[in-house]
């Protein structure tokens, strides 16, 4: 029985993510999904999900400040190579730097920085909020059953500028390219909320739960 840990570092609404992952695990008939702030649970999880809403510095501080969670996360993902999914700010924390309010170091799993969205069209509002259509840039098992043109739900004011274009697996257009999915090795990140993106999002969650990199 595989264990998927959703890390609770007191950042945002975990209920929706928990329910979406549990629904997909139930559909697959395999695996347990838990929301946890216990470093020991993260350390023995088979898959790790880092959700998150809010500001980069606050989220980074919360993650680093909570009873060994940060160390357990790094151990599980960097050392043991457990499949990892970051969602929204959880994805942004994979960057080298966050430039929100102040310069904050991230996990540096995917080189790049998180900077304010600056649409070329001044009429476009920020936050980038709502459904946008994905442009897939690379093949990946998480995109099984997903095609360019499928919509996912975004809500964010900062976006991930990826240093190596090969690690940007999908983007959307919002007065310029906005990174939607990043990935390297056993790590994945989604700027949108798969748990709020109806069938398309649930499909990607399901794909993540069956992904064996």
């Amino acid at each position: 029985m595989s264990l998927t840990a959703l890390i609770d570092y007191e950042s945002g609404n975990l209920h929706s993510a928990e329910k979406a992952f549990q629904k997909m695990a139930a559909d697959l008939g395999e695996g347990t999904v838990v929301v946890t702030s216990d470093a020991d649970v993260v350390a023995r999880a088979d898959r790790v999900v880092l959700p998150g809403d809010g500001a980069f510095p606050a989220c980074a501080a919360a993650l680093r400040g909570t009873g060994g969670l940060y160390e357990a996360l790094v151990e599980a993902v960097e050392v043991k190579g457990r499949p990892f999914l970051g969602i929204c700010v959880g994805m942004q924390l994979m960057a080298t730097w966050g430039r929100e309010y102040s310069d904050t170091p991230g996990l540096d799993w995917v080189g790049g920085q998180v900077v304010p969205i600056a649409p070329s069209d001044p009429k476009l509002k920020v936050p980038h909020m709502g459904w946008n259509d994905l442009v897939l840039g690379a093949a990946h098992p998480v995109f099984d059953g997903i095609a360019s043109g499928d919509h996912t739900y975004f809500v964010h004011s900062y976006h991930f500028e990826v240093a190596d274009p090969a690690l940007r697996l999908a983007h959307v257009d919002y007065g310029g390219d906005v990174t939607a999915v990043i990935g390297t090795g056993t790590m994945l990140g989604m700027q949108f909320h798969p748990e709020k993106s109806q069938d398309v999002g649930l499909r990607m969650i399901r794909n993540f739960l069956t992904w064996t990199p």
């Binding site: 945002g12 609404n13 809403d53 809010g54 500001a55 936050p127 809500v155 004011s157």
Partner: peptide, 15 residues
């Protein structure tokens, strides 16, 4: 109006 600031500081403007 400051209640908006307090809420946004804690949970983010997006919500």
């Amino acid at each position: 109006p400051d209640v908006l600031s307090r809420a946004a500081d804690q949970f983010g403007s997006q919500c």
